[in-house]
Amino acid sequence: MLKKVMNERGFTLIEMLIVLLVISILLIITIPNITKNQSTIQSKGCEAFVKMAQAQVQAYEIDNAKLPESIDELESQGYLKQTSCPNGDEISLDSKGKITVVE
């Protein structure tokens, strides 16, 4: 009978520590960049929401031959599903039909 001699070699503790060190360094580099850009992402989302809401005001005006009296009217008629930006900022509608972010 022939015995197979297998030369199995696993990772050593030093190799595992080096891999963990590299992963940790990558996380330390990427996480601050993600959180730093989060506010930019939220503001761009709000800008896009305002433009979409402005388009819905125009659609309401075309359908009803008048401007909506309030944001709540747009929401109740089904033109908008929410009255705030994704970051939580509220929007308002002036008497000329212009959508703005409430500061």
Rank of each mutant, 00 (worst) to 15 (best):
Q42M: 09
I14T: 11
L20W: 09
D63P: 11
T83P: 10
K3W: 09
Q82M: 03
D94W: 05
L80N: 09
A55N: 10
I14S: 12
T30E: 14
K81N: 14
D89L: 02
Q58T: 12
V5W: 10
K66N: 12
E69A: 13
E90F: 00
S70H: 06
D63R: 14
L67E: 00
N7G: 09
S92I: 02
F11R: 00
I71L: 07
K66Y: 06
L20K: 04
N37M: 14
I23N: 05
S84Y: 05
A53L: 00
I25Y: 00
T40N: 13
D89H: 07
I91S: 07
P68G: 01
K98R: 12
L93E: 02
S43Y: 04
G10K: 06
V50Q: 03
F11W: 06
M16L: 15
L20Y: 08
A48Q: 14
P86Q: 07
T100G: 06
K81T: 03
Q77M: 04
E103H: 08
V19C: 14
K4P: 04
L80Y: 08
S95F: 10
C85D: 05
N33C: 09
N37F: 15
I34A: 12
I31P: 00
M1I: 10
A59R: 15
K44L: 15
V19G: 10
